[in-house]
Design a protein around this nucleic acid. Structure first.
Lengths: 169, 169
DNA sequence: GACAGGTTGTTCAGATTTGAATGACTGCCC
DNA sequence: GGGCAGTCATTCAAATCTGAACAACCTGTC
C-alpha cells in the first residue's frame, strides 16, 4: 500500500489548527460557563435546545441527536438537570415510550442569566477572532464537513411534530 | 443588559458549524481508529508525538501540553500504553522529578500500521472535503483561534512557533 | 548550606461518557 | 388476534477525564 497520500504542509496546518482550536475552544468555554453560571457545556446546550423548541419541550431522542451525544449520556445529563429543578420530564402523549424533556421556569431563568456571558465568550474565543470573509468560509466549509458525517439520515421522519428544520439544503 | 451582542445568522452558522464539525469529526475518527487499529485518539496522538521527537522520547509535561490535556489525564493514558508495551518510561537524567515517555519498537510498529488508515480517514472526513482555498482559510483562521487560547507563558521553543503574529488589527 | 517558592508527575475521589443489555412499547403483516 | 422487527429510554459495568492534594525535587537568594 504505497498509495498513502500523506498530508502536505498546508493540509497539516489545517488539521493541526482544527485540532488545537477544537480542544482549546471547547475547554475554554467549558470553564467559562462553569465559573460564570455553574453549568457544563452539555447542560447549557440542553437548556438552549429546550428554550428554542416551540413548547419548550423536546423528545429525548431528538435532543440527543441535536447534541451529538449518545442517548445514555443524555439520560444522565437530563437527570442531573432534573435534580436541580431546571428541567422536567413528561411522558409523550402520542407514544407511551417517549419522554419529553421540558424547561422549567427556573431553567429558563438560569439560561437567561447564563446566555449573555456565554455569547460573549464565544465571540471572544472564536467569532470576533475571524475576519468577516473568514467567518463565511468557516461556516460554509465546516457546515459541509459536519453534514457529511451525519448518521445515514432517518427517512420517514414525516410523522408529525418534525419542528426543527434542518439547514436549508 | 442591552449590551449583549447576540450572534446574527451568519455568526450562528459559523458557530453551529464549528460545533457540529468538531463533534462529528472527533467521534468519527475515534471510532475509525479504534476499529482499525485498536487505539483511542489520545493513544494515537501520543505515539505520533513520540515518534516525531528527536530521540523518540518526550517529557510528560511537554507531551500533555502538546495534546491539550491535563497532566493527570496523560499519566493515565501513558500508563495504559505502557501496559500494552507500546511506550516506556525513563527518568530524566537532568531532572530527577522528570519522566520521559519513550516509544518502544512495538509502539513504532503499531503506529506505522495505524497511520495510513488514520490519514485516509482524516482526509475523507475533513481535508478532502474542503476546497483548496477553504483549506488555507481554515488553517489560518483556526490557527489564530487556537493560538490565542494558549496558556500565557510558553518558552524553550516547543514543537513549532512559526512566528507569533501579533494580531494588531 | 538553608530556605521560600515554583515545578514535576502521581494518586485519589468524583463526575462523566460509552456501548451493550434490558424492558416496554409501536407498527406492520399475516 | 398474534407474531416479529424496530424504536424508545433507561440501567449497568467499565473506561476515561478532571481538579485538588501530595511528595519529591529544582532554582534562586541570602
Amino acid at each position: 500500500m504505497a498509495g498513502t497520500r500523506w498530508l502536505d504542509e498546508r493540509e497539516m496546518a489545517a488539521w493541526q489548527g482544527f485540532l488545537e482550536a477544537t480542544s482549546r475552544v471547547s475547554r475554554h468555554l467549558e470553564q467559562q460557563l462553569k465559573e460564570d453560571a455553574g453549568l457544563s457545556h452539555p447542560h447549557y446546550e440542553i437548556l438552549v435546545r429546550l428554550a428554542a423548541a416551540p413548547d419548550g419541550e423536546v423528545r429525548m431522542t431528538d435532543l440527543a441527536e441535536g447534541l451529538f451525544t449518545s442517548k445514555s449520556g443524555l439520560t444522565y445529563q437530563v437527570g442531573q438537570l432534573e435534580k436541580r429543578g431546571l428541567v422536567e420530564r413528561h411522558s409523550c402523549p402520542t407514544d407511551v415510550r417517549g419522554v419529553l424533556a421540558a424547561l422549567t421556569p427556573e431553567g429558563r431563568d438560569v439560561l437567561r442569566a447564563a446566555a449573555p456571558g456565554h455569547v460573549a465568550a464565544v465571540r471572544a474565543a472564536l467569532i470576533d477572532v475571524l475576519e468577516p470573509d473568514e467567518l463565511d468560509v468557516v461556516a460554509r466549509a465546516l457546515g459541509r464537513v459536519g453534514r457529511r458525517l451525519r448518521p445515514p439520515a432517518q427517512e420517514t421522519g414525516s410523522s408529525d411534530s418534525g419542528g426543527i428544520s434542518t439547514s436549508s439544503s
